[in-house]
Design a protein around this nucleic acid. Structure first.
Lengths: 207, 207
DNA sequence: TCAGAAACAATCAGGTTTGACGGTTTATAG
DNA sequence: CTATAAACCGTCAAACCTGATTGTTTCTGA
């Protein structure tokens, strides 16, 4: 049934290999993240990911020879996506003339309450007992942490151990708060606590 | 080769059934917790747990017909063990004349930094995508939370939404801090942040 | 245009995990 | 003492998961 040569030539999409590769890998990585979010790490199998993409098993193994390769790449994929948005969105808030502390806390909560953060948590907990994942995730956390600290310094006009500690405390609070959403989806309650946190953070910085 | 009747009778241990049951189930549940701590949720299989106890597969399935039964029971097991100790230890600190806020924060950190808390985290994250586990863990969290709030009220002589919020913020901070230990084992750093938190908490309560 | 490389497809073997099953030993009630 | 129930044991089948393998199509550079 293939038209070949005769009549109007079928306008065949000529997609460069580099592009095909990028797209296919992207599909696999997105499917991995989605699976982590929807069914968690323990049920995220290579077959599951494959089915979500519709690609064949062979294709999958061509791009990611082992499950570990897939997960490690997913972490990098995550890192790329996440860190970019943050700074842009934060800057937008500041341009609007919002209070720096308010803007920072709000933006951070936007990150921590995003469904993608569930994937981060799944990987974090898995990494605790998996040296290979741990190494990759450490890099992810470290670079993201560095960016956040840089933004925080600029924002507050302060730096040093105390300032860094204030940011860390904020991040830890948010992480714990984010996890609470496993049990309770009371967003109004979280908003209330975040408001209190802003007050606390100002005090911390005033020290 | 069995001695029966003649000579000195073999002193056979006569263990009541209820006791045997309690012991065997305890072994299985302890092994489950240990496995969660050491190799995480995703690699905690029923075979793994069985091997840790040395019991046969038949025995295991007699007591816990399915993996879900085992995990659910493990949560209840955890709840029993954890909640008892806390109040006793806290009271001891207060009897020594320690500052209530200091004592509370220190005791909480003792809980959150205990290896057993890794098991709680593993189960929490697994529960996010497993309704059956979630239901059991909710009960666990709710009852523990209630006990902590009761202790906190007595300790501070305050109550109400703000006070409860202060405790919650403390718990969330600790949870996030506990998870940070996946990446960094700098206990001195954590001690420093906890010290700062005590100051913050006093301010929160003074509102 | 043509050869090689890369993307994509489909099937398969080996190992693991779960829960079922039939049988044995030990405790307890009558 | 005996019948019954509960604890305990060892093996098995089915499903699932991973990664290997072989074959096909599509792109790219010489």
């Amino acid at each position: 049934m293939k038209k070949t040569g005769t009549g109007a030539p079928v306008k065949r999409e000529r997609v460069p290999q580099a592009e095909r590769r990028r797209i296919t890998r992207g599909k696999l990585l997105d499917a991995t993240i989605d699976s982590l979010i929807e069914i968690g790490y323990s049920r995220t199998t290579t077959v599951e990911v494959g089915e979500r993409t519709g690609l064949s098993r062979g294709t999958q193994l061509h791009h990611f020879p082992s499950k570990a390769d897939l997960l490690v790449a997913a972490i990098e994929h995550l890192a790329d996506e996440r860190s970019k948005e943050f700074e842009v969105a934060l800057q937008a808030r500041l341009d609007e003339g919002d209070d720096p502390v308010d803007a920072m806390v709000d933006m951070l909560w936007m990150m921590f309450s995003d469904p993608i953060y569930w994937a981060v948590i799944e990987l974090m907990v898995a990494a605790r007992t998996d040296p290979e994942l741990l190494e990759k995730l450490e890099g992810f956390e470290r670079s993201l942490g560095g960016r956040l600290y840089a933004a925080f310094k600029e924002l507050t006009g302060r730096q040093g151990r105390e300032t860094k500690g204030s940011l860390e405390m904020t991040l830890y609070f948010m992480r714990g708060l984010a996890m609470e959403r496993i049990f309770r989806q009371n967003e109004a309650h979280y908003a209330h606590l975040l408001k209190r946190w802003k007050t606390q953070l100002r005090m911390l910085l005033a020290t």
